[in-house]
Amino acid sequence: MKNVLIVSGHPELNTSIANQTILSEVAQALPEAEIRRLDTLYPDYKFDIAAEQAALLKADVIVFQFPFSWYSMPGLMKLWLDQVFLHGFSHGSKGKLGGKKLILSFTTGAPVAAYQKDGVMKHTIDDYIPQFETTATLCGLDFQEPIYTNGISYTARNDEATINAQRELAKDHAARLIANIKAVAA
Score class of each variant (00 low, 15 high):
181 I>G: 04
182 K>W: 04
106 F>T: 08
171 K>Q: 14
106 F>I: 00
22 I>Q: 07
166 Q>I: 06
38 L>H: 03
107 T>A: 10
181 I>W: 07
63 V>W: 05
135 T>N: 10
42 Y>G: 01
10 H>Q: 03
103 I>S: 04
167 R>D: 03
58 K>S: 13
88 G>N: 05
5 L>V: 07
116 Q>F: 02
64 F>Q: 11
52 E>V: 03
166 Q>T: 04
79 L>C: 09
71 Y>K: 00
41 L>K: 10
180 N>D: 08
27 A>P: 09
43 P>A: 11
90 S>W: 01
79 L>P: 07
94 K>Y: 11
92 G>N: 07
154 Y>A: 14
186 A>V: 10
67 P>W: 02
86 L>M: 09
78 K>Y: 08
114 A>V: 03
25 E>R: 14
149 T>E: 10
122 K>G: 09
181 I>D: 06
20 Q>G: 14
70 W>F: 14
61 V>A: 08
10 H>S: 15
131 Q>H: 05
137 T>M: 09
61 V>R: 08
39 D>N: 14
82 D>K: 05
96 K>W: 02
151 G>P: 10
4 V>A: 07
81 L>W: 11
96 K>Q: 15
38 L>V: 09
31 P>L: 03
39 D>F: 03
167 R>S: 03
138 L>S: 00
112 V>P: 02
184 V>L: 12
153 S>M: 00
178 I>H: 00
17 I>T: 14
147 I>P: 02
127 D>Q: 10
147 I>E: 12
3 N>F: 06
143 F>H: 05
62 I>T: 10
62 I>R: 00
41 L>N: 11
177 L>D: 01
79 L>T: 15
1 M>C: 05
47 F>G: 01
168 E>H: 09
110 A>K: 10
87 H>C: 11
116 Q>L: 07
90 S>G: 15
42 Y>F: 15
72 S>T: 13
93 S>D: 09
157 R>G: 03
25 E>W: 02
28 Q>L: 11
90 S>L: 08
70 W>D: 04
156 A>D: 15
77 M>A: 07
